[in-house]
């Protein structure tokens, strides 16, 4: 059963681009939430992560702030 992955991002943030690229390179499907247009989902991201920086990744409920490659790998069981 693949893990459910959501990426909260803005189109202009380089670490968001890198995080999404990393997932794509590893053939991980994800939902991308553009928080610059969806204020409701932006609020959801702030609630989940307790902060306002992007990107935020939700991997089956594990919240990862920023493009933290090692934590993402561990959460996805890629290592």
């Amino acid at each position: 059963m693949p893990k459910k992955v959501t990426v909260y991002s803005t189109p202009t943030c380089p670490y968001c681009t890198r995080a999404k690229q990393f997932l794509t390179d590893n053939r991980i499907a994800f939902d991308n939430v553009d928080v610059s247009v969806d204020t409701g989902r932006a609020e959801e991201m702030i609630q989940k992560s307790g902060q306002m920086g992007v990107p935020v990744l939700d991997i089956d409920g594990e919240i990862i702030v920023g493009f933290d490659r090692e934590r993402i790998q561990r959460a996805l069981g890629l290592t």
């Binding site: 803005t10 202009t12 307790g50 306002m52 702030v65």
Partner: peptide, 15 residues
């Protein structure tokens, strides 16, 4: 930092 304070307006401005 990242709780309202940011160094990247381009990234976080839309929030």
């Amino acid at each position: 930092r990242n709780k309202g304070l940011t160094y990247c307006a381009t990234c976080d401005g839309p929030l």
